[in-house]
Nucleic acid binder design. Structure first.
Lengths: 344, 344
DNA sequence: GGCGCTTTCCAAAGCGCTTTGGATTTCCCT
DNA sequence: AGGGAAATCCAAAGCGCTTTGGAAAGCGCC
């Protein structure tokens, strides 16, 4: 069923039917009702490609996802983020499309997306420090919003980000207040901007307290469970092991806890742990009492805000870039306690 | 840059340029080379909507995702599955599109997808027992492959599934062989077909061993960490608590372990745990020695097989439906041991 | 009755591509 | 030299929609 045959059935022109369906005023209420009814009855939906061709809009938002390092997609954060974003897309009639890109092909892929006209805008996930994709997208003129920011990039762009620096600074201060002096940071990959900022916060808090950061206590990699476990196990073997650990995600914190258990130590009593908590649906930080003391910020909520912003950007491209800073909340759970030295 | 202006620049007709670019034989090698070069130079990419309109193919594969219960998207399994699928899509030039659907609107959404022509086929995720979507899609005639199967549906359809029944039967037998008699099942939602089959396997093994399944030891819900923790804590409080637990996913198994720790018990010694392991990138079951004894089957691999099958189905819709059964492997880790009674 | 509005509708062009049906040229062979 | 096949290219139609530029009809009013 297409416009033409529907129009014929109704004894109307395609123009009129199209206008009736799209809410234009140049059509009488009676006709509109008649048209709408017929459309419903015949299960008519305008062909999206034809509509897109005619209007120049795709009603699709793209997510370009680095593949070689599959970090983005397989990171459990991804699902919650996308779930949040999809809520906004659905509300505004957009679909979301994922394009997988091998490393180095990013420029190609963005050019292709705009040349092929398959999306109206993109979400930039996982920005790195000094991320070249931002100037690229600005140059191409494809509307985009960044999930996070990119240190070192001066041009204007829209973003939604957690105040990673401040939240890790506060978390570190919290541990310092508990008397901890050897505090480890099991960070994400430090080329990622969020990890970079978290380290800044961590270091700033240490320096402010007059403590020189120890490179041996700072680890950086993809935030898997195995990674959290491995680094913790190693550090606990040191001559003067850390008494507190800052973990970058719930998943790696789970590995951290496993290593602590295996070492015969007790969480909170022997080693304190604070993690960042993205508030993932499948990995809630406990039900009543939080398992971990954590800096919490819902990535699902971030996804929703972000996609709303992108849709606005698409619908009025000339409006100034918006930004939105989310403050993580420090929730105190059962994974932190006074430094062991203090307790004696 | 579009076909018309590119053709004009080359002093050729649109036909020739199009044919040159699409590998048709009616164009000389010399011209083809010239055209390809110009296309590259001007960064030309055919507009996908126009191409789709002309060919009738969208080169897009759809994933329709239930929203109200956001199980699908926020389940960490989702990311790995999609990562696997995207590998095949990228190889064959397809994009993937996600449509969020509120409960009850599924029929609407599928109809819309085919009417709007926005996808060439869909992947059906999270099939339930007796899932009405399968007959619906067959009726509509939209190519699809199911990730899993649906007990109670007799019509023919393509699927890729893990042999859930057998793998849980084996896992149960393994525990029985270790002397366990009170074995709990912390299952997924039992309207989900995979959970249904797992329970069948579990029950079959028990009955074969002459043990009457105890309803108090069978739990069912979304497989979150908190759920694994809560059910385990409850069951450990019973007068005769289980000595072994079968968990439905790594995430809930992590909750199970947490509850065991909190109860002052030791994994493997006091309580044995076997989990199903989807081999998620961020939640590997340990590095060298597996953390948990587990039935393992890579969901990423399933995604890749599935999407390959769907592409074949799209390209030759009349071929008979293919099916692919994956056998989970039982890996023995450190979470299982002889039943406590046996050790005395 | 005729004028100027508003209301209601329509024919046709155009979005950027593929593909059909031919036209033109080249080449080989007798 | 001429005929036919093969190679190479092209004009134009068509995919299903929106939108422009009018046309026709209805209405109140002088």
């Amino acid at each position: 069923m297409n416009l033409k045959t529907l129009a014929k059935k109704l004894q109307l022109s395609q123009t009129t039917v199209s206008r009736a369906l799209n809410g234009y005023p140049e059509v009488s209420e009676a006709t509109r009702r008649r048209v709408e009814e017929a459309a419903r009855a015949h299960n008519y939906r305008p062909n999206s490609r034809a509509k897109g061709l005619a209007t120049g809009r795709a009603m699709v938002i793209g997510h370009v996802i680095p593949a070689s390092t599959q970090h983005e997609m397989v990171n459990p954060v991804f699902g919650d983020f996308v779930a949040g974003a999809s809520r906004a897309y659905a509300a505004f009639g957009y679909d979301m499309m994922f394009t997988r890109v091998d490393d180095g092909d990013e420029e190609q892929v963005y050019h292709a997306l705009v040349a092929k006209g398959s999306v109206d805008g993109v979400i930039l996930q996982g920005p790195r420090v000094n991320d070249g994709r931002i100037p690229l997208l600005n140059r191409i003129g494809l509307p985009f919003i960044v999930h996070g920011r990119s240190s070192g990039i001066d041009e204007s762009y829209g973003w939604v980000d957690v105040n990673n620096k401040r939240s890790f600074q506060r978390a570190t201060e919290f541990l310092l207040d508990l008397g901890h002096r050897r505090i480890a940071l099991i960070n994400g990959l430090e080329q990622m901007d969020f990890a970079h900022r978290r380290r800044e916060g961590y270091i700033k808090a240490l320096k402010t307290a007059g403590i020189e950061p120890d490179p041996a206590l700072m680890r950086s990699a993809e935030m898997t469970e195995v990674y959290g476990h491995r680094e913790t196990r190693e550090m606990l073997k040191m001559k003067t092991p850390p008494t507190a650990i800052l973990a970058a995600s719930m998943i790696s914190a789970i590995g951290v806890r496993r290593a602590i258990d295996e070492a015969g130590l007790t969480l909170a009593r022997d080693v304190s742990v604070i993690t960042h908590d993205d508030d993932l649906s499948y990995l809630r930080n406990g039900s009543d009492v939080p398992i971990f003391t954590a800096t919490r910020s819902s990535v699902q909520q971030a996804g929703e805000i972000l996609s709303r912003m992108l849709i606005e950007k698409i619908e009025q491209p000339d409006a100034p870039n918006q930004t939105h800073m989310l403050e993580a909340e420090l929730v105190v759970g059962r994974s932190t306690g006074p430094a062991p030295e203090m307790r004696r």
